[in-house]
Amino acid sequence: MTGLSLDVMLDILPKMLHAAWVTIEICALTIVFSVAMGFLLATVRLLGGRVSSTAVLCFVEFTRGVPQLVQIALIYFALPRLGLFLNEFWTGVTALTFIGAGYAVEIIRGAVQSLDNGQRENAVALGLSERQALFLVLYPQAIRRTLPPLTNELANVVKASALLSVISVNELMHVSHAIIFEEFIVYEVLIELAVLYVVIIGCLVALSRYLEERAKA
């Protein structure tokens, strides 16, 4: 067993940083898409008829009840069958958006329903339609409450992005895996891998702590 080699660590660092950047790109895109889709589906769930809100409920139960790895494989194999040929990067973003949106829907719906029911009743009594009440009165208040759990969920999305290595997206985990098994450098890679993830996710967790403190005040 040899000790840690600083030279090796510096040697692999540019590759690792490049891969970390891909991870950050994927996560940033996923975060934007899944929050947008979460709001869209939460709106359907809150305003839609019985059929459409049940459909959203089924989607949510599916994304929460099936392992992320299985969902990623499903998207990877199902998209080409549907005639959508995306590269690995965008397949990965689609899969993570699918996973993230399921959680975002429930967080947003939970926040809206945790608001006092009088808010909606007052808005409707003042002559706003249900849709106006939701967009002009309930969502602006609910967004504040969704922020802490949403950032928490986004940290989970970053962790889930490591699973994209199984569909050969060139993100942090995949690149590290390649270095470990092609060049047999174990400790150096694992340490840099852990440090990079801790930095990325640590930032998000710290942000979520901060937002939670502020939401309490």
Binding site: A155, K159, A162, M173, L190, A194, Y197, V198, I201
Partner: peptide, 14 residues
């Protein structure tokens, strides 16, 4: 902190 800030796949490989 370490467990919560690293993906499970990294922990499994480790």
């Amino acid at each position: 902190w370490l467990v919560r800030c690293t993906p499970i796949i990294v922990q499994i490989y480790a």
